[in-house]
Design a protein around this nucleic acid. Structure first.
Lengths: 234, 234
DNA sequence: ATAATTAAATGGTTTAACCATTATAACAAA
DNA sequence: TTTGTTATAATGGTTAAACCATTTAATTAT
């Protein structure tokens, strides 16, 4: 029925005003806020209070602070950063385990593959094929670091194909945290790389005949294999 | 290869120390930090700098601040709040639309239903049946507000049944934001309520025979119907 | 026993100064 | 002229000391 009554802290009022300006597009990404000493006059507050507001905006991922002459608060383009950090806290606190993330990731990548298949345009399939050939070349040369990068690019492109930014943000949040906390250094070998290549070949084939379920099922196995390997390696 | 070099701001060092203590469990949820005037001495910094650190910790959802005597910073139990707020920013910025959220929600609830079915214990099904009967009673009395609350409880319980906190957090983030920005006041009627009841009856039946795919497919339709209704109402 | 008042702890804000970093301008050297 | 060095000033980061505002607890009055 009722909402929480508003707090009366001055810095929160400042946060809301600047945040609203950013979210309404009155302040564009890349644009610079006035210096602290000017802002404090605009909002009729002290520099300390103003700086507390800037800390909050910074933590929300709405601004970056640059030092020195021509420095100051710069409006950021909104991205997955705050979600990545929130997930990181859940992991570090032990609230969420590698098994939890792996299970979630399998379901998410499966769902994304279905959507991607539904939206697949000729150009998307061409892009995936081009990435596939890139990966194949790295496979032939045993360039595992580059192979993994291309593998990631394929996942990312499938994310783009969903045409849904939430999936992209969630995908990136999972990916970044897995690599930050569980798989900093991945080992690869010819056998596993070939399995991955084969998966993507099958996925592309399935996309061409609009077989969303098959594509989804393949990528879920693909991700599961990666997860199992990772859990064995710990 | 390399990581971003650490910033040299004093308040960030304070944030990290307190954050680590919380995440390592050295500071338990509910426990109170010393007053600002003591903390500033402990960290050998000024009160202004210390307060900037507290703002960051507050924004991360790690502490709450209470005013007055016996007030101060209280360690919070980690929850979905920061993720909810991040998603809220994506929505308010226009980066994410109702259609995006609806599509995401359908896939998530479908995935959750599959996992819930896999983990379903007799007690879970009993709980769902009890909620079903509660909803039926509200249906008979045309108590729509209570009906919707029970409907939500059923979804939440399915979230619990996944045994995976990420799904619960994501589910709550979607739910809270949909109701904050798109469906503050839901209208219900006998026809739609009956459809919902029927869905849950079928879901429970599917769970009893361990038919995860059917249960999942029903709840996806169920959520889709809700989304369509919501989008028509705007 | 109850209500009103006072005191003290604690977060919130202000002011004024100084320190640290960095882009730019001015200058010096090749 | 070009290139490297040095000074300048803009701007964020930090500090110190004071006062204000809220809230709990103790005290006092009814």
């Amino acid at each position: 029925m009722f909402k929480k009554a508003k707090q009366t802290r001055v810095f929160q009022d400042v946060v809301e005003q600047i945040q609203d300006a950013i979210l309404n597009g009155k302040l564009e990404p890349g644009s610079k806020l006035p210096p602290e000493r000017t802002l404090k006059d605009i909002f009729n507050t002290s520099r300390g209070t103003l700086r507390e507001a800037l800390r909050v905006l910074e933590q929300k991922g709405l601004i970056d602070i640059k030092l020195g002459v021509a420095g100051g608060a710069i409006v950021k383009r909104i991205d997955a950063e705050p979600i990545i950090e929130s997930l990181a806290l859940l992991i570090r606190s032990g609230e969420v385990s590698l098994e939890h993330i792996s299970e979630f990731r399998i379901k998410i990548e499966g769902s994304m593959m279905e959507l991607a298949a539904e939206h697949a345009k000729k150009k998307d399939i061409q892009e995936l094929e081009s990435l596939f050939n890139e990966a194949k070349a790295f496979y032939n040369n045993n360039e595992w670091e580059n192979f993994l990068k291309t593998d990631e690019k394929m996942h990312t492109h499938i994310g783009m194909m969903t045409r849904n930014p939430i999936f992209r943000f969630v995908q990136k949040s999972i990916h970044d945290n897995i690599h930050r906390y569980y798989a900093e250094h991945l080992s690869m070998n010819k056998k596993r790389a070939l399995e991955n290549l084969t998966d993507f070949k099958k996925i592309i084939a399935a996309l061409k005949i609009n077989d969303a379920k098959t594509a989804s099922s393949i990528i879920m196995d693909h991700v599961k294999r990666f997860s199992d390997k990772m859990q064995k390696n710990r």
